[in-house]
Design a protein around this nucleic acid. Structure first.
Lengths: 191, 191
DNA sequence: CGCACTATCTTGTCAATGGCTAGATTCTTG
DNA sequence: CAAGAATCTAGCCATTGACAAGATAGTGCG
């Protein structure tokens, strides 16, 4: 069954990141331990440090991966539907499908927010979001398109956060994506 | 200057909570240590445990305090202005003025979210928020007032979170309260 | 092929932390 | 004043993050 573990793991970096995703799903981002991730990956407790430096470095890599995934998801939604509302829904869907990444990305006290890789990935995601928001019909967006963009981002981000925290009342149902679509529709609904 | 420290602190519970607020402001909620708080309060490392049980218990107390403060702030704004928009602004102002509390309240993995005290306080805040949202003129709220409420909450919560994270672009200025008011105005603006 | 060089991983160690237990001190209440 | 409860201290242990030194495996270059 279990083959003899070779001295070199072969793909430790990816394995630790995957283990981190699972561990954060189970115990939350505050309680992950590097040593536990090392155990999950089947290596010694100090092996991950070589790839990530320290714990914050690991979470930095996870945040960068998350921003990349987010940028991809937003760009895909934008190209698929040409509908800014669906870009917002895609934002929420990303948060739900990648809750571990999402839980780290917007917690800059957990990682190195100025790391070049994470900065670049965040920039990509930010551009994708701006593109989606830029497609808001100006008649619906009000006089200042920038404000409308911040409002849209705030709304979907807040909704995803509140839903993931279990802060929203249960009467709202169990389909977060449909609810997100309905809530987002409130923002720019024509009267 | 420094009088001899008596065996009994006298007000250790409050002192530790206050120290926690400061510590979280400095290093973030993930890195606070009970022992550091004990040092700040001038007591032995095990003293706080008597009042809070464990670390999660301390953060539970902090979250409960936060929900109480939030309920007060929302109720005051509601009574002062009778304007749901100002209730939203008060939500953002609370998050900015009590960032340590805010950083813990919506992170249920850090504390005991089912603790009776925190449940009650959260209920109070939720009621205050509902009252504020209930005052949204139905013409502006759309067909489903509940959806409008979730949208409003999501918007102010998301804005506060993004601002505190430094995720919003700096071109938006340095007055978060004014910006929050402008962004919230987008939500229910008449055409 | 062989050898140096580098990347990867292990083992051992240390200080700091959270949590527990036993005991000391002070307050309270009858 | 006495007994018990509340509060705090001191000591201990397992776990963690970080570091250092060394072992192993892959890589490139003669």
């Amino acid at each position: 069954m279990t083959s003899v573990r070779p001295y070199h793991h072969g793909n430790l970096r990816e394995a630790v990141l995957a283990a981190a995703v699972n561990a954060i799903n189970e115990v939350g981002p505050a309680s992950v331990s590097l040593r536990d991730l090392a155990r999950r990956a089947g290596v010694s407790h100090a092996a991950p440090a070589h790839h990530f430096g320290d714990k914050a470095g690991l979470l930095t890599a996870l945040a960068a991966e998350g921003y990349d995934l987010l940028a991809d998801a937003l760009a895909a939604a934008q190209q698929r539907t040409q509908d800014f509302l669906e870009v917002g829904v895609a934002y929420v869907r990303f948060a739900l499908e990648h809750r571990s990444h999402f839980a780290v990305m917007f917690r800059p006290d957990l990682y190195h927010p100025d790391d070049p890789a994470v900065r670049a990935a965040r920039e990509r995601a930010s551009d994708a979001l701006s593109t989606g928001i830029g497609s808001i019909p100006s008649g619906r967006a009000g006089p200042d398109a920038r404000l409308a963009g911040v409002a849209a981002w705030s709304l979907v981000h807040g909704f995803a956060t509140l839903w993931l925290n279990g802060a929203l009342p249960p009467e709202l149902g169990d389909d977060p994506e449909a609810l997100a679509r309905a809530v987002a529709a409130v923002l720019f609904s024509s009267p």
